[in-house]
Design a binder for these strands. Structure first.
Lengths: 245, 245
DNA sequence: CGGGGAATTGAGGCTTCTCAAGCTTAGTGG
DNA sequence: CCACTAAGCTTGAGAAGCCTCAATTCCCCG
């Protein structure tokens, strides 16, 4: 753990996220601290998981931003989903499986092996949290499909921003309507199925409209309720976590 | 099971699919026959699962075609994925969860409760098959995202057709390059993020090009290898099942 | 034979892309 | 401290792909 001298390894956000989506015993939360002892630091633009690589063990994102991507043979790139603190990587597919997509760090990131258990032994609630996390992940994938298939540029950006905001809130990373968005317009374009030029123009239109301000790596939702009204879609989190919270 | 008089309840395709993706003991396959005793017939256009409904138990698709869909408030519809014989519904999310999307029968369909087990008790290999099926499902979702985000109409249709062909082969429903496609151009449009008008024109172009023939509910891949070359994407099945077959 | 959903066709328009250039900003080395 | 660089952002102009609307034809089914 020499590298961690540079980066404070904190399990706070991961802990809050998992505790938000399932009831976890104090001992379960403590296991996260132990897992964090084996944390690994990943530099920006470095891959955390290589597509096609055999998955050794599920990973837990402790801090930073990453994205899952697929690249077509001619270089076109699609960001499949974002990976934020508290998210699991390769949990559903860790038996004899290979990774379905690359996971690349956007910012400097910290991951650790996710605490695992013998099947059926979930007295601590962590397995339940993992399962709930998986359902949430699927919900985000379905939202992504709907965004790409049936929304225009303005709606895609709005919907995406709302989702990110919601996910950051769930991990207690932010509270207000403003947050750090360490993402280039190019990456946004790859996530939203657009070109960076068009993302740029649409962002300008949104600022003019008083919907969204995005500058210097900070995003501010200027009118979240109007944004939600524009995007006729239901929150992924509310879909997947209908009982809790 | 009075309705089943009209439809022959066969577990063949489901059995083949599950056996193709994991090693299942003979007793495990026999459990499918028992589960099929409690099969339910669903008429075309009827919902098999309602979005937001609490999931009682995982279901297994025995025969027919269905699709998972989400609908925006203004009526725009997105087909998230197809559900073919041997596919599982609600397996990953059957603990206290609600359905993330509606599942609607396209043709007359037969579903039955998927045989379940106490956790950790998978001597028959069915749980492994379910897990592998889940990984495949995720792979199809990722392929769908890439299709919608980064492919044009011609590529989307090609990629989609190749995927369907592959899935039907996996369940031993077809063998050659020709298969029944009980899907309107409208539904194709909703699956591919296009309009039915544009799907129509693109299909005509593909027929002219000698790529694909689609008429009277039958699709024929006229030049699968050229289609694969055009679509610079890797087969989802090969991604998710790298060891087997 | 009639009805109705699905497929097809046409014309025009809008969203998004492409290409290309200029600008801004932060980091780097002299 | 200041060019210098590189990456990201911004702008413009033109083109392409896809959509909308609307009308017509086809085909299956009763």
């Amino acid at each position: 753990m020499k590298q961690s001298a540079k980066v404070a390894v904190s399990v706070d956000h991961a802990r809050v996220r998992l505790a938000s989506i399932a009831r976890i015993a104090p001992e379960g939360l403590q296991m996260l601290d132990e897992a964090a002892m084996r944390a690994r630091v990943v530099a920006p633009h470095r891959d955390i998981v290589y597509e096609g690589e055999r998955i050794q063990q599920p990973l837990l994102m402790l801090s930073g931003w990453a994205c899952r991507t697929r690249t077509l043979m001619d270089g076109r790139r699609q960001v499949l989903s974002l990976v934020l603190p508290g998210d699991l990587l390769g949990y559903s597919a860790h038996h004899q499986q290979t990774a379905l997509a690359s996971v690349t760090a956007i910012t400097g990131s910290v991951v650790c092996p996710a605490p695992t258990f013998a099947a059926g032994d979930d007295c601590l609630g962590l397995v339940a949290a993992y399962a709930a996390s998986n359902v949430l992940d699927e919900s985000y994938l379905l939202a992504q499909i709907t965004r790409l298939g049936r929304m225009n540029a303005l709606e895609r950006i709005s919907d995406w921003m709302l989702e990110i905001h919601e996910r950051l809130c769930l991990a207690d990373i932010i509270s207000g309507n403003s947050f750090q968005l360490p993402v280039t317009q190019e990456l946004m374009a790859d996530a939203l199925g657009l070109t960076s030029v068009h993302v740029n123009r649409t962002l300008q239109a949104m600022r003019r409209e008083g919907l969204l301000d995005l500058r210097g790596g900070t995003a501010t939702l200027l009118d979240p309720s109007r944004m939600r009204a524009m995007v006729g879609a239901v929150s992924s989190t509310r879909r997947a976590l209908p009982v809790e919270r």
